[in-house]
Amino acid sequence: MCQRIIIGLFLSLYLLTACSVLSGTGGPANNKVVDEPKHVESEVDPVATELISQEKAANNSVVQNKQSDPQAILPAPPRNYSAAIITGKMTSDYKQLIAAVENHFDGDTSLYLLKGSRESQQKTFDEIQASSHHYVMAIGDLAATSALRLDNKTLMFSAVFNYQSDGLLEQGMQGVSMLPNPDHLFSLWASLNPDLNTVAIITGSGHEQQISRVKQSAAKYGVKIIHRVVKNDKEMLYESELLFSTVQGYWLLPDHRVLSRRSMKEFLSRSLKKAKQVVVFDQQLLKYGGLIYIEAKPADIGSAMVKQLADSDSHIVFTRETNMLVNAGVAKTLHLDTANIPRNYISHE
């Protein structure tokens, strides 16, 4: 009888795993939305594995370049080409990013700010289309999705977290992921909590590439990533509650589709009450209960964008440099030892 039960359990696990594999099939061009809120974890996601291999190639070059002199190894973009920089907002991060692009790009650049009505935005694109700019660097989701209408331009995006769900890569755009370097995060997190073993990530659909990279990195530190795909903030809260008993912490990624201001506050509040460690993408969330704040450095993203122009083979690249900060107050509340953390990573209480 016990043997039957054990066999049944193994069969169930096998079938479940098979279903997961089938639902995640499609590679970078197949960004199938996961409907079920109770998404299975993607520990053996083949798509993710493939993406990681691509990413590795890109990152290896970056790492190698970083380690030696990236400008000397990567081919520089043609000097007589000019670039148009488009953005929907002029936030401080975007400004830093734009400044980095302008700094590293040899040719002329023109900055276009998308604002006003659709007509005015269309006029802007018409102007870009008619211009001699060979490169178009879209910063932000609005700029990236809007830039798809341009023809005969080399399109580059950054500061777009949902690039997979937006189908940017499939439509020929190259880009720089805004996912911060997970190695840095888990290195820091593991130092803060040596017993860290299970972390949940709840996002919307279409983040397989980035989740794969995260899992790969987490595995180095013995941390298991449980990824849940939800459709809205309500499901995100619900799912997070279901995971309270399973995980030690959450990494809150900036998927705007499943995040609302209220849900973030509530999620952080509930998490803190449940003594869960939460990594947040915005520094202001620390005061609501976030433990670690991490983001890719805007300047690094800008630099990577310029380098990406010369590498038409790589669709997406990941940056290396990050900004990180540990919330000392929450760490104290959660009884985490910050002694091994560099002082510049610790926020003032």
């Binding site: 932000g140 809205n232 609302s260 201001r261 993408f281 915005d282 609501y288």
Partner: peptide, 16 residues
């Protein structure tokens, strides 16, 4: 019963 979400371009600079 409602769902809410932050605007796409606001995630790097939003007022909570």
């Amino acid at each position: 019963v409602a769902i809410a979400s932050i605007q796409a371009d606001e995630l790097l600079d939003f007022d909570l």
